[in-house]
Nucleic acid binder design. Sequence first.
DNA 1: ATTTGACCTTCCCTTCAGGGGAAGGTTTAT
DNA 2: ATAAACCTTCCCCTGAAGGGAAGGTCAAAT
Lengths: 129, 129
Amino acid sequence: MNIGEVAQISEVNSKMIRRYEEQGIIPKAGRSLSGYRQYTENDVHILKFVKKSRELGFSMKDIKQLVSLWRNKNRPSSQVKKIAQKHIEELEKKLNEIESMLSTLNHLVKNCHGDHRPDCPILDELECH
Amino acid sequence: MNIGEVAQISEVNSKMIRRYEEQGIIPKAGRSLSGYRQYTENDVHILKFVKKSRELGFSMKDIKQLVSLWRNKNRPSSQVKKIAQKHIEELEKKLNEIESMLSTLNHLVKNCHGDHRPDCPILDELECH
DNA sequence: ATTTGACCTTCCCTTCAGGGGAAGGTTTAT
DNA sequence: ATAAACCTTCCCCTGAAGGGAAGGTCAAAT
């Protein structure tokens, strides 16, 4: 298969496929005589794995490790779990940050008239401190 | 005041102060004879406003508008409120995405032994679909 | 047999918010 | 006079994704 077909099936953009190859996240594709990248079903499989991992918010660094663990049939599951747990911690941190922002913002927006007048508790809050 | 002092007071890095100036978010600083940027209390005030806005997660694009509205004493508060509401919507979207990732990840991690054995529901999930 | 259009290649630039560090000029304190 | 601390501009890097140029290849229609 050429890169375009694989991109369609795996739902990973050709641009990204080339980049993932460059970053060593997926194996280097074989080439046709004229230099076109050639892919197999297995490559599609890997790309779907990468896509699913991205959807769960893993960084490409994590995904590189996850792919490598996935392909190593002797991996200890502890290593996979560790990566996932660290990721969970980071997501929880982000979650807390966003929740805190939202709580402030919601409060401010509730108290802003939002009309033609210039008085604005949102700007007042940003101004203070 | 020189840039370093202002950076310390406003808690905005000198590097960032220069960039904000370049991006037109804060007014161009005056210069000393030798070319050093010169700041006033008012500049510190603006920088604190910018910093506070960043802490609430606003984009620099939004902040540029917020600063401009803040300095315009005839602004309609509706414009400020609109920016804040749009930002809230985006944060809520992010929040939902993260919550959804976390719910999947927590479930997977719970079911992963995390020992020396290779069996791993996390990898299984990433592999499927 | 040629042309056209769709596909592929590499290369560089852009985004966003932030930072590192080089090379060189200025100020201040010793 | 010199050293340290400060300032200037300039370019590069991060991470994940993508835009688009310039040029090579392939297949189908004319």
